[in-house]
């Protein structure tokens, strides 16, 4: 199973990259789950042509009890991708990070992975890892590889750098490691050079360069990924290409050897 988490600065294109990748994996014949880990609950919109899934937090807000089965908090999107949104509290109150942890626990309790047996799981996460909850998707047992989305803009690179240093602090925890950079172009001056410098500085490969593309915007307006709305476009090919290469990522080397059950107890997040 390929398990990816997508991080990056706010508004940089994480959900766009994630959804297009999900669609690309699906068209490659893979069984895909996409989990949006953002209180805005807008990660899977372009997979669901405008009819969103009930977010887990919205469900919990309205009901006193946990949902009995997965169907209430999941929805099939384009390419049969199973879409889930954690959602979150009303901005300004509550604890969004805790919401992510609760959602993950719930998904465990409902045996999401055993039931669905996906080939690929994608977590679309907030750019700013502000508390433990936002690192939950990269804990052992969840994502194994991190993709960092960035443009050549100063603040996007700043956020990317923060993510790299946060992840390096988790090294001894056996968390996910960074597979590389998704360069989502904003057409700022010397953009490619800046990304190259960042890549050299961090030792992270640039896995793909996605150009600023009107196709992405027009498809988004129609509630679609480019793989659905413009399958023959050049940018769709870029996502298909990237997806195919990601499928060859080797499983992450874990710190401690031996049977996984010694290290990770299923359903530990509570």
């Amino acid at each position: 199973m390929l398990k990816l988490a997508v991080y990056g600065k706010g508004g940089i294109g994480k959900s766009t990259m994630t959804s297009n990748l999900s669609a690309a994996f699906a068209l490659l014949g893979k069984k895909v789950i996409q989990i949006g880990c953002d209180p805005k609950a807008d990660s899977t919109m372009t997979l669901l042509s405008g009819t969103p899934v009930t977010s887990v937090m919205d469900y919990l807000r309205g009901h006193d009890a946990l949902p009995e089965d997965l169907s209430i908090i999941t929805k099939r999107g384009f390419g049969h991708v199973l879409c889930i949104e954690t959602g979150g509290p009303t901005p300004g109150i509550g604890c969004a990070g805790r919401g992510i942890i609760t959602t993950f626990q719930l998904l465990n309790d409902l045996s999401l992975f055993d039931e669905e047996k996906p080939d690929v799981v994608l977590y679309d996460v907030l750019g700013d890892v502000v508390c433990g909850g936002f690192a939950a998707p990269i804990r052992e047992g969840y994502a194994e590889h991190i993709l960092i989305v960035t443009s050549g803009e100063k603040m996007a690179l700043y956020a990317a750098r923060n993510i790299v240093s946060a992840v390096s602090q988790f090294e001894d925890r056996s968390y996910a490691s960074i597979a590389g950079i998704l360069f989502n172009a904003r057409n700022v001056p010397n953009e490619r050079e800046k990304i190259k410098a960042f890549s050299t500085e961090t030792g992270l490969p640039v896995l793909a360069e996605i150009p600023r593309s009107d196709v992405i915007n027009t498809c988004e307006d129609r509630g679609m990924t480019v793989l659905e709305g413009a399958p023959d476009s050049a940018v769709a090919t870029l996502f298909t290409d990237l997806a195919a290469r990601l499928l060859t990522l080797p499983p992450k080397e874990r710190l401690r050897k031996g049977p996984a059950e010694h290290r990770f107890q299923e359903g530990f997040l509570q």
Partner: peptide
């Protein structure tokens, strides 16, 4: 509640 990662 804090979500501390005890297995880690």
């Amino acid at each position: 509640l804090l979500g501390s990662d005890i297995p880690a």
